[in-house]
Design a protein around this nucleic acid. Structure first.
Length: 210
DNA sequence: GAGTAGATCCGCT
DNA sequence: GCGGATCTACTCA
């Protein structure tokens, strides 16, 4: 079932970020579809959140898309990487969800061409997955249905356990530094900064084998 | 396997 | 000028 844009205002952002775990992201390309399951997300919860790009309600050219309608794609560049976010909540409320890691399902050879790495290193980080999927800044500010991206639920992928931690790379932001707003599929090898001993090689953290 | 330094560039102050 | 929602290579074990 394809996720529509009203999903992105149907619950608080932290809940939506959890619901995206196990959701399949499809990128339609000339060479065919690239498909990957979302295994790690982070929630950014608005102008009070010191780690949010819309902190304080200040709108700039860079963060403008974050203030747009729910279901808008927000991309921005960081150290030469492109990071992918989906905007949540009403227009003017700068909340969003960062996609931090995905597990490839289909189009592996095309992904490897985009990013010549094997195993988890292909997509186990926010900058890595945009490279592998060929996502760039042209997506910024576009509504999901206007982009080559599709999000859909697949009953095959249900996390056995969702783990909650503080967000990565957020330092010196007071209580927001430790806020439990990062969500991941426990044991999935594509989760970023995953320790080898925590990996569930049997089921990749899903409820059943695929 | 785990931890750390350096690269590198755009947008904002 | 400065610093960031990162990545990679290099170290030590």
């Amino acid at each position: 079932m394809v996720i529509k844009t009203d999903f992105f205002e149907s619950a608080p952002t932290a809940q939506l970020a959890q619901k995206l775990l196990g959701v399949v992201l499809t990128v339609t390309t000339k060479a065919g579809p690239l498909r990957a399951v979302i295994v790690e997300t982070e929630a950014y919860v608005g102008q009070l959140d010191a780690a949010d790009h819309g902190y304080g309600g200040r709108i700039t050219r860079k963060n403008r898309a974050l203030f747009a309608a729910p279901g808008t794609v927000f991309t921005y560049q960081m150290h030469r990487q492109t990071l992918l976010n989906f905007v949540t909540q009403a227009v003017g409320d700068p909340q969003g969800i960062l996609i931090r890691a995905v597990q490839p399902i289909e189009g592996l050879s095309a992904m490897t061409q985009n990013r010549p790495k094997t195993g988890p290193a292909l997509t186990n980080g926010p900058g890595k997955l945009t490279q592998a999927l060929g996502l760039t800044m042209v997506l910024n500010g576009r509504l999901l249905p206007e982009t080559p991206l599709t999000l859909s639920w697949d009953p095959i992928f249900q996390p056995r356990e969702v783990q909650t931690t503080s967000r990565i790379g957020i330092a010196n932001k007071g209580s927001w530094t430790a806020a439990p707003l990062r969500f991941l599929v426990a044991g999935n090898p594509f989760v970023s900064k995953q320790l080898k001993r925590d990996i569930d090689l049997d089921r990749y953290g899903w409820r059943s084998n695929n």
